[in-house]
């Protein structure tokens, strides 16, 4: 996990609250390269307006704002407005008082100013990754469902069966007969399908009734789409 794929951030909207205009400006300038949209506001009031109008995936806020407190704002947001948006708190303070408040509020991360850009991005990545993955999975699932709707359903059934019955070593220990018994297909279809998979290197025959599933030889979805 050392090298994070920061590309996933590109799908998200970020709300950044910082009362110091220079910092706000420059952080925004940097972050806007990585994310879909960045909403940079100096006050909590502005922030609430943005939240009400836009989909916000992550909030980055300073604690010590002019006449306001970032943590108080997050609390208000969570309990009064019932928004459950992940948040990163950035502050010059390392006071335990704030830390405890932050923990109680289940703030996702806490970074100390001056902001280290990498840390911030990594933190954002770590928070957003599960969401991105969830989205990805949903996307894949929808894709499969779409493919199966337009192509031969039997092949999809067979892929499902193979992936479902892979053991810990990615081994598939079934004969054609077993497949035919489980999935309602004819023998020639099975043989043809397996030949295709062996040709592409996705499956490697180790011995009779024993195949290795090569995950790495799968083509990437985008490539597939490109093709």
């Amino acid at each position: 996990m050392n090298k994070r794929n920061l590309d996933i951030l590109g799908d998200f909207n970020i709300l950044y609250i910082e009362d110091e205009p220079q910092l706000l400006k420059h952080t925004t300038m940097v972050l806007e390269d990585f994310v879909q949209n960045i909403f940079a506001v100096p006050t909590c009031k502005d922030a609430l307006e943005i939240i009400k109008k836009n989909r916000i995936d992550i909030i980055i806020t300073d604690i010590n704002l002019k006449h306001e407190n970032g943590i108080e704002f997050l609390k208000e947001l969570k309990y009064e407005h019932e928004y459950n948006i992940p948040a990163i708190v950035a502050t010059a303070y390392t006071d335990t008082e704030y830390l405890i408040d932050a923990i109680k509020l289940k703030v996702e991360d806490y970074i100390v100013k001056p902001i280290n850009l990498k840390d911030l991005l990594n933190s954002m990545h770590d928070i957003l990754l599960p969401i991105a993955q969830k989205k990805e999975i949903k996307k894949s699932y929808n894709m499969i469902r779409t493919i199966s709707a337009v192509t031969d359903g039997k092949q999809v059934e067979m892929v499902k069966f193979i992936l479902k019955n892979l053991d810990a070593e990615s081994m598939f220990n079934y004969s054609y007969g077993d497949i035919m018994a489980q999935v309602d297909v004819s023998k020639p279809t099975v043989i043809k399908f397996f030949r295709q998979l062996l040709q592409k290197g996705i499956l490697t025959k180790i011995q009779n009734k024993k195949y290795l599933f090569n995950e790495n030889n799968l083509p990437s979805p985008s490539e597939e789409i490109d093709e």
């Binding site: 110091e20 220079q22 910092l23 400006k25 420059h26 952080t27 300038m29 940097v30 390269d33 010059a92 100013k113 001056p114 902001i115 280290n116 850009l117 990498k118």
Partner: peptide
Amino acid sequence: HQWRQPLGALMMIIQGFGSKFERGK
């Protein structure tokens, strides 16, 4: 405290250079 804010901004500017460069922007 008065230094901390501009210092933070300065550091962000410097990091911005790196980040922009990496991204080719």
